[in-house]
């Protein structure tokens, strides 16, 4: 189970995922609207994630 922090809201979600693309699919978040960072760095969606890694989804959309 991977812990995913969602910014800017700050909520933390537990997600069953092997790769970053699983996180997007499980949470139903748009990959156009969010950027995935693992250990502080942007990653491609095929990147494997381990349970102890710091995973953050940052919403890049602004305005409203």
């Amino acid at each position: 189970m991977v812990k995913v922090r969602v910014l800017p809201e700050g909520k933390i979600l537990d997600v069953e995922a092997e790769r970053v693309e699983d996180i997007f699919r499980e949470l139903g978040y748009s990959r156009e609207a969010y950027v995935a960072l693992v250990n502080g760095k942007p990653v491609v969606e095929s990147r494997r994630v381990k349970d102890d890694e710091e995973v953050v989804l940052v919403r890049v959309l602004s305005g409203g």
């Binding site: 990959r31 609207a33 959309l61 305005g63 409203g64």
Partner: peptide, 26 residues
């Protein structure tokens, strides 16, 4: 500084249109 202006609303029409365009893009 990556924070939303406190006057911006996520349920606004502007934001919803952006989300819609992103769904199209996907």
């Amino acid at each position: 500084y990556h924070e939303e202006c406190p006057h911006a609303r996520l349920d606004s029409l502007d934001f919803t249109i952006k989300e819609f365009l992103n769904k199209l893009e996907e």
